[in-house]
Simulated assay, not measured.
Amino acid sequence: MADGSFRHETRLERRRRRARARLEEPRSRRGLRFLLLVVVGVLVAVALTRAPDALARMELFQVQEIRLDGARHLTVEEVRETAALPPGFSVFDERAPVARRVEGHPMVARARVSRRWPSTLVVEVEEREAVAFHATPTLVVVDREGQPLPLDPVLHRLDLPVVEAATPGGLRRVATEVARVGEMEPGVAAVLSDAVALPDGSVALHLSDPDVVLLYRPPLAPARLRRGLRVLTDALDRRPDRMPSAVDLRFADQVVVRWGPTPELAALPPTPNDP
């Protein structure tokens, strides 16, 4: 036990001597050590900052492939052309400008560009949805904002209603309503033949089965649409021998079923043949 106590005291004294030595170390030496640590830290930070630039110049990390996700109609070739990557573009280079250029394509609503090591860019897009043909008089595919889309109706086998409007605002209004009705009642969208933006701000939807027109002022609420369809069904049940010409939803808390000619219907175009 005495020997153990002696060894313990010796270690304690050794620690004290080392502590005194550190305290007695010249300030200049301590300052030099601190400065050396700072310099090493700065060099490491600079190296980490410059590393991507150095790696970007390596052929291994220069973009060799573009992958496209989320597209139905857009092709990789169209994305590559729109992205317009400069020669030597690397996966380390800024990708936000690439996404903005891709969003400049008329088919693209939103784009996101990520990288996949070592040399691939992944372009994820949300396409603008084709909702109708605009009679110009040739048929042009438009989205819900009435913006034209570069789609060939025959090549893509599009089956869409025809919309007609006298002004850009009217086109946007009727195209938006066609899209909304399709979201609210897919069954109505399936039999929607054509739609017109009327001069008074209302919209006329021409259904093919049954052959009837829905008149209303946008935006059409889902409950209002369902009520109009119920009234139409009831009218057909009551008078199966007489087809209504229109269901008018433009009056608050009323649904008016028309059997005779309606002046508004004169604006409706004839049902076109399939493109």
Rank of each mutant, 00 (worst) to 15 (best):
A2W: 04
D3R: 12
H8T: 15
E9W: 14
R15L: 04
A19Q: 14
A19V: 03
R20E: 15
A21Q: 11
R22C: 03
E25W: 15
P26E: 11
R27N: 03
L32T: 14
L36S: 13
V39Y: 04
L43S: 15
A51C: 12
L55A: 05
A56V: 04
A56K: 10
R57M: 08
E59P: 00
F61C: 02
Q62A: 01
V63K: 00
E65M: 01
E65A: 00
L68Y: 08
G70Y: 05
V76G: 09
R80M: 08
T82R: 15
A83R: 12
A84H: 07
P86T: 09
P87E: 09
F92C: 02
D93F: 02
A96C: 13
A96D: 13
V98N: 04
A99K: 08
R100I: 12
G104P: 08
P106K: 12
V108A: 14
A109C: 06
A111T: 11
W117T: 06
W117I: 15
P118E: 11
L121I: 15
V125W: 00
E129Q: 14
H134N: 03
L139F: 00
V140I: 03
V141N: 07
V142M: 01
E145R: 02
L149R: 01
L149I: 06
P150V: 03
D152F: 00
P153A: 04
P153R: 04
P153W: 11
H156C: 08
H156I: 05
D159T: 05
D159A: 13
L160P: 00
P161T: 03
V162I: 03
V163F: 01
E164Q: 15
E164D: 13
T167Q: 11
G169E: 12
T176M: 06
V178W: 13
A179M: 14
R180S: 07
R180M: 04
G182S: 02
P186W: 04
A190H: 12
V191S: 02
L198N: 14
G201D: 15
S202D: 12
S202K: 08
S202Y: 11
A204V: 15
H206W: 14
D209P: 02
D211I: 01
V213A: 09
L214W: 15
L220D: 00
A221V: 08
P222M: 05
A223S: 06
R224Q: 07
R227M: 04
R227N: 13
L229H: 09
L232T: 13
A235N: 10
S245D: 05
S245E: 09
D248N: 13
L249M: 01
F251G: 03
F251L: 14
A252D: 12
V255Q: 13
W259N: 14
G260F: 10
P261H: 06
T262D: 04
T262K: 10
P263M: 06
A267K: 10
A267D: 09
T271V: 13
T271W: 05
